[in-house]
Design a protein around this nucleic acid. Structure first.
Length: 162
DNA sequence: GATCTGACCTGCG
DNA sequence: CCGCAGGCCAGAT
C-alpha cells in the first residue's frame, strides 16, 4: 500500500536558496522541480501523463512549461525520473531530443508496452494517467493543508474527459 | 538584478 | 477547422 508516510509533496514555500546551496544535491528539497519529479515517478508502468496534468496537479495550471523545464533538469536526479512517461497533451514525444537520442524515449515507452507511431503515442487516451484524478483524494489534502483556510477552491467544471 | 528562454496549454480570430 | 499569440513561472545568462 505504498506506505510512504514521508512528506511526499511539500508546500514548496521556500523555493530558491540564496545561500547558493543546490537543492538537488541535498537529495530532497521543497523546490517546485522536486515536486514535479515526485509526480513523474508516480506515473505507473506502462502509463503516461502530460506536462499540463502535472502542472494542474501541482496547482499551477498555466505553468505546464515549468514541468517540461523541470524535466530538463531531471538528469541531475540520481534517483531517476521516468521522464519518458511525460508527454504533451497531444501524446507527442516532444521531449524525445532530450533523452540523448531521438529514439531513446520511444524505445523506453515501447519497452513498457506503449506503442508509438511517428512520435505519437498510440491509444494515448487509454494509457493516459492523470495525477489529478488518480492522486487527488490523498495529495490534495497536503495542499489544502497549506492554505488550511482557503478551502474555497474553484470547482473544476471543465473536465478534460477527452 | 533585469531580461530571455523554455520537453506547454488554452483561447481567440 | 486551422493558425497564432498570450500566459504561466522558474532557471539561465
Amino acid at each position: 500500500m505504498t506506505g510512504k508516510g514521508r512528506g511526499f509533496i511539500s508546500t514548496g514555500r521556500d523555493r530558491g536558496r540564496k545561500d547558493g546551496a543546490p537543492e538537488y544535491e541535498s537529495g530532497r528539497s521543497d523546490s517546485f522541480f522536486q515536486k514535479v519529479y515526485e509526480v513523474a515517478r508516480l506515473v505507473p508502468y506502462g502509463r503516461v501523463t502530460s506536462y499540463g496534468a502535472i502542472a494542474e496537479f501541482l496547482g499551477t495550471r498555466g505553468s505546464a512549461r515549468m514541468v517540461g523545464w523541470a524535466m530538463n533538469s531531471s538528469h541531475t536526479e540520481a534517483a531517476g525520473v521516468p521522464a519518458h512517461r511525460v508527454v504533451n497533451r497531444k501524446g507527442v514525444l516532444t521531449g524525445k531530443n532530450h533523452f540523448g537520442g531521438p529514439h531513446v524515449m520511444q524505445q523506453l515507452l515501447e519497452s513498457e508496452g506503449i506503442k508509438v507511431n511517428h512520435d505519437l503515442i498510440d491509444r494515448f487516451d487509454e494509457i493516459f494517467w492523470d495525477p489529478v484524478k488518480e492522486l487527488q483524494p490523498e495529495v490534495f489534502i497536503r495542499f489544502k493543508d497549506k492554505d488550511a483556510g482557503s478551502t474555497a477552491r474553484k470547482p473544476k467544471s471543465k473536465l478534460k474527459n477527452h
